[in-house]
Structures are given as structure tokens and as C-alpha cells.
Design a protein around this nucleic acid. Sequence first.
DNA 1: GCCAACGTTGGC
DNA 2: GCCAACGTTGGC
Length: 134
Amino acid sequence: MNRWLVKSEPSVYAWSQLVADGRTAWTGVRNNTARLHLLAMKVGDEVLYYHTDDDRQVVAVARVVKEAYTDPTAEDPRWVCVDLEPLRALAKPVPLAAFKADPALVDSWLVKLGRLSVLPLTEAQYQRVLELGA
DNA sequence: GCCAACGTTGGC
DNA sequence: GCCAACGTTGGC
């Protein structure tokens, strides 16, 4: 079971929209590192849902329901997407500042490589976020 | 709105 | 194959 984090601009596709839709194709990723992470996702993997822009916090947990396939919104067929469904919102969102302040999270890719939109978390990092968000 | 960090492109 | 220039992302 791998753990991930995906970013979304809340003005474009917020968590509430995923809840309303019940499921979505995670399209539009055009960065090779992020692409490799999408390719590594397995059905059942849990994915933290992070809002960029003014929010800048993890708000919820989603789950992979379909593994990587060609992104229908891309001209180049090498780009892929996965399908996600909402799992649950965090009781308390975990802000980026908490990642930077927490020794267990400061080494995460979210902090180290801020522009990466799909990134892996270690099990310990993942559990720590859930703990902070409980 | 600005800027830092990173990726990509294209000239040589 | 190197690197300068440019574009994009996301935090502040």
C-alpha cells in the first residue's frame, strides 16, 4: 500500500467538487516526475488531497479506484491519469506550515519540491498527517 | 504582484 | 552535450 499526495487548486477542482462528483479522472498532469508517480499508483492506494493557492492545506483523503491510463485531455498519449474517489475529509485540515514545522514532515516532497503536483509520502509521513488532522 | 525553484527548449 | 533564455507553478 503506497501513500500519495495530490494538489489541486480549489478554484479549479476543490475537494467539495470531488465529493459532489463521487469520482473523477485526475487529468492534466504534465510533469514527468508526477507522471511516474501516477504510473506507480495502485487501486486502493490512499491519496491526501491538498489545496493550493489561498488554502495551502491537506483537507481530505481520497482513494485510487483506477490505475494509470492515457489522459484523454492530452495530445501526447504518454501523459496518463488515474481515477480517484473521495474517502473522507480530515477533521482538521493540515496546513503547509505544519509540514514545515513538524520534524516528521519537513523532509517530505511537499516541502522539498514545492512545485511537484503528485508526490509520494512515506507511511510515517502519511500517518503523521492523519494524526495532525484528527 | 513578485519571486524562487524547477523544467523545457533551442542555439551553438 | 552544454547552457542561456524562457515558461510555469506555487508560496508569500
